[in-house]
Amino acid sequence: MSVARFWRKQQNRYNLIGNQCTVCGKYFYPPRGFCPVCRRDGKIVEHQFKGTGKVVTFSIIRSSSGNFKLLTPYVLAIIELDEGSRLTTHLVCDIDKVYIGMPVKRVFRKLGEEGSSGAIFYGTKFVPA
């Protein structure tokens, strides 16, 4: 991912900053600039998520590429944040420990890098709470 493309959403990725539609109350992370429920009637504001949630579903990735090669096998999971929004994450935990409903919390990790001389990307992953 190019530096500009990553940097654009860096604040969101570092600090779990998403959105809330103040009309319907729904929370969005990953961020959305347009409420899919209220559409033009919606009013989107920034919202910083607490960073706690639980595992909705998961898989253990045994074959991967790029930045995840060295991390393989690793847990991939969909997390439901306490505020109600869902996201996909590398769940940093022992592969035999994950289960549906497992409570998790945010953690700051490297998301990848553009080779050994390129930019390093950081952001939020999750660990068991």
């Binding site: 060295l70 991390l71 940093v92 990790r109 950081y122």
Partner: peptide, 16 residues
């Protein structure tokens, strides 16, 4: 460190 940890991630976690 874990493979996705370095001085930056450790510093952030400590500061947080």
């Amino acid at each position: 460190p874990d493979m996705d940890e370095d001085t930056i991630t450790i510093s952030v976690e400590a500061a947080r």
